[in-house]
Design a protein around this nucleic acid. Structure first.
Length: 204
DNA sequence: CGTAAGATTTACT
DNA sequence: GTAAATCTTACGA
């Protein structure tokens, strides 16, 4: 089943949960099940990078859906977004955490090379860790997303198909006015899944 | 041009 | 629990 990315991040985010992401970076295949995402709505969202307009970094978000927006955070880590919506609307879904279901050995080696990973649970639990496990870096900013498991694209996305228990809550590290982390409840994750990262409120 | 803050992770007290 | 690492963008002088 193909994913429809033409809606806003709020439409797309819940549908990505339970879906499968395949990465073939460097010829090494890693497959993960998405368990946690966050929606970002561009110009209408103070927490979005695109809130204050287009820059060289976030240009991809203003483009058509079905592309990867990868950015470097704090100089050390990368975060992966799926661009959705229409061109000109900078809406995207941040992939925050996933469960590695195939290519665990490759993911483990990448995580060991970049830092320390003690348990399989931590392989892709968190945005930066997920990027490492998948082998995605700043070079992959703007690459097209495929929808076939064995397609030519570097990364591919597939819907999980069935309904999954979704929990909605405040985004991690992002606050609304007055330090209210629940002001924009645009974080979605699978209920009770151990691979979901811990919630942290943003700085006030 | 200089400074502050950020969609984070890791290590140390 | 708290701090440090480290780079890009935004904003004030």
């Amino acid at each position: 089943m193909n994913l429809d990315l033409s809606g806003t991040a709020l439409d797309v985010a819940p549908r990505l949960l339970g879906g499968v992401l395949i990465s073939r970076v460097g010829g090494l295949s890693v497959r993960v099940r998405i368990v946690e995402v966050e929606a970002y709505l561009g110009a209408h969202d103070p927490g979005s990078h695109a809130y204050r307009g287009r820059t060289a970094r976030n240009a991809v978000m203003f483009g058509p859906a079905g592309h990867l927006y990868v950015y470097r955070h704090l100089g050390l880590h990368h975060c992966i977004n799926v661009v959705c919506g229409q061109p000109g609307t900078a809406t995207a879904v941040l992939l925050r955490a996933a469960e590695v279901i195939d290519g665990e050995k490759v993911a483990w080696q990448r995580r060991q090379a970049a830092g320390v990973c003690r348990t399989p649970r931590d392989l892709a639990r968190g945005p930066g860790r997920l990027a490492v496990a998948l082998g995605l870096t700043g070079e992959h900013d703007g690459v097209a997303i495929g929808f076939e498991v064995d397609g030519p694209e570097l990364v591919a996305l597939r819907s999980g198909g069935g309904a999954v228990p979704v929990v909605r809550g405040g985004r991690v590290g992002v606050n609304g006015p007055g330090g209210d982390s629940q002001r924009y409840p645009w974080r979605y994750h699978l209920a009770g899944d151990p691979h979901v990262s811990a919630f942290r409120a943003g700085k006030v």
